[in-house]
C-alpha cells in the first residue's frame, strides 16, 4: 500500500485584485474584483515508503500548495489525500506528529533566541523523551556539522547555518516522511552539497520518505530517482530522471575542440552543429547514431584536440520543457 496517495486533488485560491495607484486603491474600497487561481488541478500520484521524489515546476505552478495539502495545513476543495492511512487535514494532530516539514523561505526557529531553545521547545511540543532527544540532536548536529552554532541566536546565523538548524528542527521527532519546500534556496555550493549528502544519507539509512521541491536542477539530479513536473497546477510528468531525459531531452552533446579552425561539412546524423572558433558543439540523438560513430566521423574530417560527450543540461531541458508545454 502506498504511503502517500493523492487522487484528483484540486485547490483554488481567490485573489483580490485592484488597479494600481491611489485611484485604484480608492476604487477598491467600493468595488473589489477577485479572480480565482486554480493552484492545484486534479493531481493524482502515489509514493511508496522510502521513496525520494523531486517535485519541480516553474514559480506559481502549485508545488508549495501541494506540499501544504499533503502536510495537512491546507484543506483541498475536492479530491482525496491519504498519508499513512490518514486524511491529513481531518486527522491533523496525529498526522503532523509523524511528518517533518521544511519551508525554505520561512523559519520555524524562534528568531531571537539560540537554536537550542527552539529545539527544546519542539522537544516538549512533540513530547520527545529527553534521552531520545539528546541522542537525536547529537546525531543530527554531528551529521550536519552544526554543533558549533547551536548556541548562536538564530538572527545572527548565516543562511546556511540556519537551514541546517531548520533541518534539525524538522527531524527531532523522528518523522517517517519529510516534505522539503526549496530547502537549498540561497545556499552556497558547499552548504548545498552538505545538505544534499545529509538528505541522501537520511533517506538511505532511515528510509525516510521525502518529497522535495526545488528550482535547482543539480538537487534533482543528485537526489531524486523519481521526478514529478507540475505546471499550472497540473501534473505533467511523473517518472524516473532517465525517462524524463529520454522524452524531453533525448539528444547528447558532443563538445569538441579542434586543433585548428575549420568547417565541418557533411556530418551524418547531427541534429545541429554550432561553431565558435575552434570549439564545436554537435547535438545528436544516440538512438539514431552512436556516440562512437559520431566521433569517428568528426575525427575523419578534422584533427581533434579535446572532446567530451554530455547529456543536455537538465536546466536547459526543463526550460525547453516549460516552453514546449507553454507554462
Amino acid at each position: 500500500m502506498p504511503q502517500i496517495r493523492l487522487e484528483e486533488v484540486c485547490k483554488r485560491y481567490v485573489i483580490a485584485e485592484r488597479e494600481p495607484g491611489f485611484y485604484g486603491a480608492l476604487r477598491g474600497l467600493v468595488k473589489r474584483k477577485t479572480c480565482v487561481v486554480q493552484a492545484v488541478d486534479r493531481i493524482s500520484f502515489s509514493l511508496e515508503e522510502g521513496e525520494l521524489a523531486g517535485y519541480i515546476g516553474p514559480n506559481g505552478a502549485g508545488k508549495s500548495t501541494s506540499i501544504k495539502l499533503m502536510s495537512g495545513i491546507l484543506c483541498p476543495d475536492s479530491g482525496e489525500i491519504e498519508v499513512m492511512g490518514r486524511t491529513p487535514w481531518k486527522q491533523r494532530e496525529q498526522h503532523v506528529a509523524d511528518i517533518g516539514v521544511v519551508f525554505g523561505q520561512k523559519s520555524q526557529l524562534w528568531w531571537d533566541t539560540p537554536a537550542i531553545d527552539s529545539f527544546e521547545l519542539l522537544r516538549d511540543i512533540y513530547k520527545v523523551p529527553q534521552r531520545d532527544y539528546k541522542r537525536r540532536l547529537d546525531e543530527l548536529a554531528g551529521r550536519l556539522d552544526a554543533e558549533s552554532v547551536l548556541n548562536t541566536p538564530v538572527r545572527q546565523m548565516s543562511l546556511g547555518q540556519r537551514m541546517k538548524c531548520e533541518l534539525i528542527a524538522a527531524l527531532l521527532h523522528g518523522p517517517r516522511i519529510l516534505f522539503l519546500d526549496e530547502p537549498t534556496i540561497g545556499l552556497d555550493a558547499v552548504t548545498r552539497i552538505a545538505v544534499r549528502e545529509f538528505l541522501t544519507e537520511l533517506n538511505r539509512r532511515e528510509g525516510v520518505t521525502m518529497i522535495l521541491t526545488t528550482h535547482d536542477m543539480d538537487d534533482v539530479e543528485a537526489l531524486c530517482r523519481r521526478v514529478m513536473v507540475v505546471g499550472h497546477g497540473k501534473l505533467l510528468f511523473d517518472g524516473g530522471m532517465d525517462s524524463l531525459r529520454k522524452t524531453y531531452a533525448p539528444n547528447r552533446l558532443l563538445k569538441i575542440r579542434l586543433s585548428r579552425e575549420m568547417e565541418l561539412r557533411g556530418l551524418q546524423g547531427a541534429e545541429s552543429v554550432k561553431r565558435n572558433g575552434p570549439d564545436v558543439v554537435i547535438s545528436f540523438n544516440p538512438e539514431k547514431i552512436s556516440a562512437e560513430r559520431m566521433i569517428a566521423q568528426v575525427a575523419g574530417l578534422a584533427p581533434i584536440a579535446d572532446l567530451t560527450v554530455e547529456s543536455t543540461d537538465v536546466e536547459q531541458m526543463i526550460a525547453d520543457m516549460y516552453r514546449e508545454l507553454q507554462l
Partner: peptide, 13 residues
C-alpha cells in the same frame, strides 16, 4: 506574514 503554516504543523490543538 504567512508563517502560520508552521504553527499548524505542530501536533497541538
Amino acid at each position: 506574514k504567512g508563517d502560520v503554516g508552521y504553527e499548524l504543523l505542530r501536533p497541538m490543538d
